[in-house]
Amino acid sequence: MMILADILSATVLFAVPLLLVALGGMFSERSGVINIALEGIMIVGALMSCLALSFMDQSGFGPANPQWAMLLAILVAGAAGMVYSLLLAFASIHLKADQTIGGTALNMLAPAFAVVLTWSIQGQGNTTIFIPTWTRITAQAAGAADTGSFLVRLVFKSLYLTTPIALVLLLLSALILYRTRLGLRLRSCGEHPQAAGSVGINVYRMRYIGVVFSGFLGGIGGLAFTVAAGSGFQSTVAGYGFLALAVMIFGNWKPLNIFLASLLFAFFKILGSYSGSLPFLPQFKGVASSEYIYLMLPYVVTMIVLILSSKKSRAPKAEGIPYDKGRR
């Protein structure tokens, strides 16, 4: 039973970055801008927030008020992502550049910038920024009475402030997208910007908002990935930005579907690392390094689901096309 709790809590831990970043991608694409740069945005968010965390660790503020410090780090991550995403917004909205060009440049820039900055702050060769241990929310800190129970294990095995915040952001995202005037306008700009423009909606502004939202969520996602990965920030998010893009398409550009897609993907990802301790899973005795079969699993499952559900898949119609007022 305890192993089930471990698996589920690890699933949630890894689903959180995918969820946040895919939601970010959703806002950007729903407004009409393809955001290939999510990977870079994640790295910048993770870089800045990890620097903030280690600064707060050294200054003593962090250990004294761990969750306030974490909240601050989350805000730093979001803000950094927003600023970075403005570079994409400027190139693809104002300059009407090909959106993959700007995105690719930003993806390349972020990890290189992170390495250079980490070197110059921590000294040559020290490429890892360690995450202070006080960031985790423990059962004791939360005041749970029975630390041995299934539920406590499930919730507190690997709980960080990013998880509850991600759930709040998921709800907010769905509300904004479907229940506010802003959301309606944003969606209209991704479907038919000229029609939106003709009724007085500022398409440029809506697209800026979409991209900046994605920067905010992507930056926080970067921090969430780094706490989940557990080994500190090493100037990479291991392709999670691209995976999140896949999760977003898989989730059909809808918040709830993205939530489920990220859980499914994370579950199959985690299953692999527990394959040794789950007796009912096939062990592939005759095969050397069979762990690779399990590592492949989430990608294969995603592909199968995508092919099966492809009939229903519908991308925002105007995504990727720079807005031109004169076109019809």
Partner: peptide
């Protein structure tokens, strides 16, 4: 009609 970007990403890892 599956987006080639997502298939490519998945098959990079596979």
């Amino acid at each position: 009609n599956v987006n080639e970007v997502i298939t490519s990403i998945m098959f990079n890892w596979i």
